[in-house]
């Protein structure tokens, strides 16, 4: 039997970030407007595989999803064994910019989920003229923590198991089992301390409450979509953030949780396609 081949292709790029060479893995599919997708903390770019496999989207969008350094098939930079991984706003912004410049993308749309949804706000704020639009999934300028990240990386608790079991409740009850468990697998296989290092950015170094009001949505339109079952970045967090950004559009998605693109891709499609249709119309 001949296997079914997906239209996705994968590549590695070597790019300098903060003077260190990083080997970054990315996948892409489609042609047209570049749509760069940012995965959640402690996971990898395969969360967006359903978008990359959606001919209704890849007809007009070149959908690109990359694994941040330390995640998925991207390597940590050489010397990683001598340091604790800790993501910051500055490093995250520089990584996304280096990736986009490395591929010579012109005016891409950036879509990120969770911590990816947080950084798109900073990108819209500080580099809005470089992007056609930003889409924040499970995105807010700040949110209240709900557990101690010390549990994520210690010798007497399996980091992957506890990470997956913590975030399992962020998946909506309606999500199909197949996709719920695929989403959790991303956490189960994450490198030691990586989820915790991402959460340094998310918890400690990205309180944008005083700054998001300066985003100019005429230059860089902002779309925020949050699942009603997300109790980490709650619908209230997203609506409060949208209210501070003049011109931002917010949508609360029914029957979805914190990982809409991978926990229930069919349901998510109903919400994301109209946004992508609107963005297509921009010059």
């Amino acid at each position: 039997m001949v296997a079914k081949l997906e239209p996705i292709t994968g590549h590695y790029m070597q790019v300098e970030i903060y003077g260190r060479i990083n080997r970054i893995y990315f996948e892409e599919s489609g042609r047209g407007i570049p749509l760069v997708c940012l995965h959640t903390a402690g996971a990898d770019g395969s969360q967006y595989r359903h978008l990359l496999n959606d001919p209704g989207i890849t007809r007009d969008y070149r959908v690109i999803s990359f694994d941040l350094p330390w995640h998925g098939k991207s390597l940590p930079p050489a010397g990683y064994h001598l340091e604790d991984y800790s993501l910051t706003t500055e490093l995250y912004v520089d990584t996304v910019l280096a990736f986009c410049r490395g591929l010579e993308l012109r005016q891409p749309v950036i879509m990120g989920c969770s911590m990816g949804g947080r950084i798109v706000l900073e990108l819209a704020l500080s580099h809005g003229e470089d992007f056609r639009a930003v889409i924040g999934l499970e995105s807010a300028d700040h949110q209240e923590p709900w557990y101690d990240t010390e549990w994520l990386h210690r010798p007497d608790v399996h980091g992957g198991e506890v990470s997956a079991a913590l975030v399992s409740g962020l998946v909506a009850p309606q999500a199909p089992d197949e996709y719920r468990w695929e989403t959790l697998w991303g956490y189960q296989q994450s490198g030691p301390g990586v989820f915790k290092g991402d959460l340094h950015f998310y918890r400690v170094d990205s309180d944008y409450r005083d700054r998001v009001g300066d985003i100019d949505t005429q230059t860089c339109p902002v779309y925020l979509l949050t699942g009603e079952y997300d109790f980490s970045c709650t619908p209230e967090d997203t609506l409060r953030t949208a209210a501070r950004i003049d011109g931002a559009e917010a949508t609360i998605m029914e029957g979805l949780g914190h990982f809409p693109m991978c926990e229930d891709p069919v349901r998510f499609r109903r919400y994301i396609v109209p946004v992508l249709e609107k963005i297509k119309g921009y010059e």
């Binding site: 209240e144 709900w146 557990y147 549990w151 007497d156 608790v157 399996h158 198991e161 506890v162 997956a164 079991a165 913590l166 399992s168 409740g169 962020l170 909506a172 009850p173 079952y229 109790f231």
Partner: peptide, 27 residues
Amino acid sequence: YHDLFAMCKRGEARIEGELHPLMANLR
């Protein structure tokens, strides 16, 4: 109300005591 930690965050559930056995076997 769909998850233990969601209810904890709402203040309608709480976890007390030595948490290691819970967290090491959370699933």
